[in-house]
């Protein structure tokens, strides 16, 4: 009788363990969707700025260079494409600062993020791009002036935060992922890990529709 109780309890424990493990994995896979895939973290890092619902299952990952004209042009386009699926899709910003001096702009953006002003600053940086680039080279002084005039930022704090080692780490990790994923041009866009090939707004819309349909 006691032996039976012992054996039965042991079996319940072992069985319960594996059942719970199975349940846990299934729940997580379902909750994360794309993010549960092994390669997903190369696309979406915990440090990356994200726009959109946290429980989204479609991830629109953009490797951007703030000094790249097409990236600036894509800013509003991405938001417009996301709009019809606003509750299902999340924009993830990654950095690929290929232009000379673009790293400094990324530092500014991340410092602005520390003040909780990331998205409006990114918007301003994109919109004013022609005023702070000359022949594809970043004129950082101009950008500082624009931000202090038009941005709602604490500039003194900003000038301290740009040197934060955490920002350097973010840039290094993003550049490493740029290598891994073979991003050679900006914007480098992926929807749930699928690269935007061939590059184009229509193809991007199609990718988004496909991934939304597959994930929901």
């Amino acid at each position: 009788m006691k032996r039976a109780l012992f054996v039965a309890t042991s079996l319940v424990l072992v069985g319960g363990f594996f059942f719970a493990a199975q349940q846990f994995r299934e729940n997580r896979t379902e909750a994360l969707g794309f993010l549960s895939q092994e390669q997903a973290q190369t696309f979406v890092r915990p440090h990356s700025p994200r726009y959109g619902p946290s429980d989204a299952k479609v991830f629109l990952v953009e490797f951007t260079d703030p000094a790249c004209e097409t990236c600036a042009a894509f800013g509003p386009i991405l938001k417009k494409l996301m709009e019809p699926h606003a509750d299902k899709i999340q924009l993830v910003i990654r950095y690929a600062p290929f232009h000379e001096g673009a790293v400094d702009v990324v530092r500014l953006l991340e410092a602005a993020r520390m003040q909780g002003k990331y998205w409006e600053t990114l918007d301003l940086v994109y919109r004013s791009q022609s005023a702070w680039t000359e022949h594809h080279r970043v004129q950082a002084g101009n950008l500082w002036q624009i931000l202090s005039q038009h941005g709602d930022l604490d500039m003194e704090l900003l000038s301290q935060d740009v040197d934060d080692p955490a920002i350097r780490d973010i840039i290094e990790q993003d550049m490493a992922d740029v290598q891994t994923l073979g991003v050679r041009k900006t914007p480098g866009i992926f929807v749930n890990g699928r690269p935007l090939e061939p590059f184009g707004v229509e193809r991007l819309q199609q990718l988004i529709e496909e991934e939304v349909a597959a994930s929901y």
């Binding site: 309890t9 042991s10 424990l13 072992v14 319960g16 363990f17 493990a21 846990f24 994995r25």
Partner: peptide
């Protein structure tokens, strides 16, 4: 036994 199973669950699952 439950504690051991729970501990393994936390780390391996």
């Amino acid at each position: 036994a439950v504690a051991a199973a729970g501990s393994l669950f936390f780390s391996y699952v």
